[in-house]
């Protein structure tokens, strides 16, 4: 990444209760990272559940397959995953130790830092 690398932040609020709204944000973020854009995703509210071990495998997509392959693809492409600690703990009853590898568990204030640091913020 060079100094003129652009930064995008995707904010994700949809979780397993709404599978149709889970695929596109993650796919789009994966694509951004492949385009040499410094890409981050911040998962909060019920979106945090998607990052619990074993959950993404159960989110079936209409196009076939599960969400897990797209999360793997995004991580492989270099998307930085952040999950809101408060959403995890207080809304979803998930321990930080139950979160999949490659995800940073962070506080709510990190969302403000990431948003201010990004060139653009896209919210789903």
């Amino acid at each position: 990444m060079t100094e003129d690398t652009k930064k995008l932040l995707y904010v994700m609020t949809n979780g397993p209760e709404n599978p149709d709204k889970t695929y596109a944000p993650i796919y789009t973020a994966a694509l951004s990272a492949a385009m040499e854009i410094d890409t981050s995703m911040y998962f909060l509210m019920h979106a945090a559940e998607l990052l619990k071990k074993g959950v993404a495998e159960t989110v079936a997509l209409k196009k076939g397959g599960s969400l897990k392959q797209f999360i793997n693809m995004a991580l492989e492409n270099g998307v930085k995953f952040y999950v809101c600690e408060e959403s995890l703990r207080d809304l979803c009853n998930i321990e930080a130790s139950d979160v999949i590898e490659g995800v940073r568990v962070v506080g709510t204030s990190t969302l403000a830092d990431l948003a201010l640091d990004a060139d653009s913020v896209i919210s789903f």
Partner: peptide
């Protein structure tokens, strides 16, 4: 190791 192109297929998005 840096991208020469980006490929999109709907099931795959990668460099």
């Amino acid at each position: 190791g840096k991208p020469v192109a980006t490929i999109e297929s709907g099931k795959w998005a990668g460099p």
